[in-house]
Nucleic acid binder design. Structure first.
Lengths: 332, 332
DNA sequence: AACATCAATGTAAGCGCTTTCATTTGGTTT
DNA sequence: AAACCAAATGAAAGCGCTTACATTGATGTT
C-alpha cells in the first residue's frame, strides 16, 4: 500500500501539498495538481481513511442502531439512510438493539466507542431521560420514530395519531359503526398515539368508544391472532377491526378465518405501516402508509447538515401518514 | 475525552503499561493493573478505536455488501452476521450493491477504502473473474450465496439443486404428475441449479420434463404473476407449480386466483426460500427453507477464524435446504 | 528599485495509540 | 553479599495523515 509519503516523493512535492490536492479545498497550482494526481495513479494510491480520521478528528462514519436488522421496517429505513449517506462519502455502521433497554444502551455505547461522528437511533426501550442526557451532554444523534419534546430537534417521527385517525375514519366513511381495535403495547408512544387517533375519529362521528372492543397486542402476528380471538369471544358484534400494525392484521385475519369468518365480507381489516407483506396478503391489506424510507433519508440529511455542514434541503421532523386502500375492507 | 496519556499520568505509569492493561495479553502486576483500571474509570476513559487501528494496522471492521438493505433475505443475513461479529467486538459497515455490476464494484471499492479488514459479499452481477482476481491478489472476503470453484474456500452457498429437487419431489410424492415450473433468470447460477434439481426429481419419477411447462421469471412477484398467466395460457393441464422463490409464488397464487382457480384445491403452489412473508400468505406457503441467517453467521465465523485468528467451530461451506410443509399444496 | 502583497509550497508538530527494545526491580541462588 | 534472572516497566519510534505556521517567489505599487 502506497502512502502519502511515497506519493509526495514521486511527485517531488511535500506531504502537505499532496494532502491539499486530496482534499480539494485549498489552492494548488494546476501544474502541481497534475503531477500529484499522476503520481497517485501510478502508485495506485489509496488514502488511509483511518489515518485521516485520526488526524482530522472526524471518522466520516455514522452509526445506526435499529431494533432488528431483519423485519420489514428496518430494512427500508436503513436503505434510505445508506443511499443518502454513501452519496456523501460517509459510511454506515450498524448495530441491533433488540428492543431491550440494556441491549440498546449497549449498542449505543458500542457505536460511540467506534468513534462515529453521529448516531441514528431507532430505540424503543431506552428511557427519555437517558436520551435527553445523551443529547445534551455527550453525543450527536437523531432519533427516528420517536418524539421527545425536550429534544424535538433530534427527532424524526410519524404523525401516528393522524394515522390512527385516518384508518378509523376510512372505515367510518364506508359505513362501519362497530369497530374493534387491536393496539400495540400501549406504553409505547406510537401505539398509544395511534389509538388516540382512533378515538378521535370515533368521537368525530359521534360514536362512543367501547373499551370492550379494544384489545392490547404486542405488534406481532401471533398477538394479532390472540387479540382477534379475544375480541370475537366477547360476542360483541363488530364489522371491522383496525390493527395497529400490519403483522397483527395478518394474525387477525388468520384468526377470523379460523373462526369461519370471511375477510372482508364478514369482517373488514385495516392495518398500519404498509410494510411489504401487506401487498402479499390475501386479501391485500388496506393500511396506512408509514414512509419509513423517506424518514431514513431525512435523518441522514439532518446529519449531513448538522454534523458535516453539508448543504441540505430543510429538515422535516414530522411525517404524515396516508391511507392505502386495498382489498381487506368493504363498504357497507 | 481523556487520552491514554492522561490515564498514564494519573496512574503514575507509562503509556506502554496502560496499553498493556487495555489489551490484556502481556503481564502486568496486579497492583499496577488496578491503579490503571481505577484511573481509567475516574477519567471515564474510552480508547480511541481509530488511533488503535492506525497503530495496530487493524480496523476491526468488516464490510458487508448486499444487493439491497431491504428485501426479505438480506435482513436475515445481516442479522446473523451482526450478532456474530459484534460479540467478537468487530463492527459491521454496510453498503448496497443493487444487483448491478458497476454498482457492486463501487460498493466493494467503497468498503475497501474504508479499511475494512475483510468483506462479506452478496453480489450477483459482478463476474467470477473479477472476484477471483480480487481474492487472489488483493483482499480477504467471503462470498455468500455464490459458488466459484476456483475460490471455493471463499464461498458459502446453499445446495440449490437439492432444494429444487426437494420441492418437486414433495409434489411428486403427493401424487402430482403434471408440474409446472416458474424459474428465476436462468443465467443466475442459483436459479439454474434449482431448476436442475426440479428436473432431477422428475426424472427420478420417470417423468419427462416438458419444456412448455417452464416459464422463466425474474424472482419478483410481478414476474411470478406473468409467468403463471403464461403457463395457464398454454392450456396444458397441470396440478401444481413450483416457483423458484417465494415472491414469485405470491405472484403466481394471485394470478391463479384472478383466473378463478383456488389454491391449493385447483392448483398447488410451492415456493422457495421460506422468507418471512411465506407464513403470512394465504394459504400459507409450502416452501423450501433457505437458512440464510445461519449462513450469515457462518460467514462471520469464517472471518473471525481466518482474519482475526479467533477460535471458531469448523466452517461449513455448503448448506442444505429443507422442505417446509404448509397449506399451499394438497395431496392428490 | 525598494517594498508590500499574496498565492503556492514546505516544515514540522501533532492525532492517540501499539510495540520493540532497553532498563529497572526484586527475588533466588551461591 | 555478590551475582543472576525473569518479570515488570519505561522510552521512544512509528502508524499515515492534517494543519498551523513559516517560507518562497511572483506580481503590482510607488
Amino acid at each position: 500500500m502506497a502512502t502519502i509519503y511515497q506519493v509526495s516523493e514521486l511527485a517531488g512535492v511535500s506531504l502537505a501539498t499532496v494532502s491539499r490536492v486530496m482534499n480539494g479545498g485549498t489552492r494548488v497550482s494546476e501544474k502541481t495538481r497534475e503531477k500529484v494526481t499522476k503520481a497517485m495513479e501510478t502508485l495506485n494510491y489509496r488514502p488511509s481513511s483511518i489515518a485521516r480520521s485520526l488526524a482530522s478528528n472526524c471518522s466520516n462514519s455514522v452509526g445506526i442502531l435499529v431494533s432488528e436488522l431483519h423485519g420489514p421496517i428496518y430494512g427500508e429505513m436503513m436503505s434510505g439512510i445508506e443511499k443518502q449517506l454513501r452519496t456523501a462519502g460517509k459510511h454506515v455502521i450498524i448495530a441491533a438493539g433488540h428492543s431491550d433497554a440494556a441491549s440498546e444502551k449497549d449498542g449505543i455505547e458500542f457505536l460511540i466507542d467506534r468513534n462515529c461522528d453521529a448516531l441514528i437511533l431507532h430505540v424503543e426501550a431506552v428511557s427519555d431521560e437517558y436520551l435527553i442526557e445523551l443529547a445534551t451532554t455527550k453525543y450527536a444523534f437523531i432519533l427516528i420514530n420517536r418524539y421527545i419534546p425536550q429534544i424535538a430537534d433530534n427527532c424524526i417521527s410519524l404523525n401516528n395519531r393522524r394515522g390512527g385517525y385516518l384508518a378509523t375514519k376510512a372505515l367510518l366513511e364506508n359505513g362501519h359503526r362497530d369497530i374493534a381495535y387491536i393496539s400495540g403495547p400501549l406504553w409505547k408512544m406510537d401505539a398509544n398515539d395511534r389509538y388516540l387517533g382512533h378515538q378521535e375519529a370515533l368521537s368525530e362521528f359521534g360514536i362512543a368508544c367501547n373499551e370492550a372492543l379494544l384489545s392490547e397486542g404486542n405488534f406481532q402476528e401471533e398477538g394479532g391472532n390472540e387479540c382477534m380471538l379475544a375480541l370475537l369471544d366477547t360476542k360483541i358484534a363488530f364489522s371491522a377491526v383496525v390493527c395497529a400494525n400490519d403483522e397483527m392484521a395478518a394474525g387477525a385475519m388468520q384468526a377470523a378465518r379460523d373462526r369461519g369468518l370471511a375477510v372482508p365480507n364478514d369482517i373488514s381489516v385495516m392495518g398500519f405501516d404498509n410494510v411489504l407483506l401487506a401487498r402479499y396478503m390475501y386479501p391485500k391489506l388496506s393500511t396506512v402508509n408509514y414512509p419509513v424510507q423517506d424518514m431514513g433519508k431525512m435523518a441522514a440529511s439532518w446529519i449531513l447538515k448538522n454534523i458535516y455542514q453539508a448543504n441540505q434541503p430543510d429538515i422535516s421532523h414530522v411525517f404524515e401518514p396516508e391511507l392505502v386502500w386495498r382489498d381487506s375492507v368493504i363498504s357497507l
